[in-house]
Amino acid sequence: MTFGALRIAQKDLNIELRTRERMTSMVLLSLVIILSFRFAFFGFDVNLTGSPELVAPILWTTIFFAGLVGLESSFSYEKENKYLDGLLLLPTSRFSIYLGKMLSNFLFLVVIDVMTVVFIIAFFAYDFGGDILTLFLVLLLGTFSFVAMGTLISGMTMSARTRQSLLQIALIPLIVFTVVIPAVVATSTVVIGSGDLAPDLRILGGFGILSLLLAYLLFGHILEG
């Protein structure tokens, strides 16, 4: 089961290494969103060092929207090119397809995490200092939780004509309490340097695992028919 998942993730990585289609659009989107924030704050002379409470919302808004683009193309690529039947014929469980897709989405989004942090450092001249390792722990956990539910919803909405907007409409309400708020609060805790990280990390991890469990139960139903 896990072996099949790894092979599917490897296939996605290979395609990405050759075409660089998804990474390019995701990284560029992340850049454009950060720049939009930069220009939106133009008149206010915003200084993130002075108001670090803005770092987490900017960081996660960027990651979520760049991530949504990645999630959207995850299954639509297979669907549009009629590769989905090929995937379904693989001698592995449906859940492995989900796991493999989740793994590749996760890896792509981790790159976006890193790039977004780099963009914030570059365009807002913000110094994360010694927090950067703890920050990446929060980013990894938040990304895992986001991708775990996101891949499930992405699989659900792939056949819809309006899947781009549908993925966002369907996914965001489900993750408001469970991913968005805990991720932003945990990141703020790290950046501002006061408060307890553990409860928010527990929500993120717990929801990620719950999403895996739901995918295990439901993903077979999604790919049927």
Binding site: M156, S159, A160, I169, A170, L218, H221, I222, E224, G225
Partner: peptide, 19 residues
């Protein structure tokens, strides 16, 4: 939105049920 935004597709009721 899942119900109405989609073309009439066999998988839509199942997807909606999961949602």
């Amino acid at each position: 939105a899942i119900r109405s935004g989609a073309v009439r597709h066999e998988s839509i009721p199942r997807v909606a049920a999961i949602f």
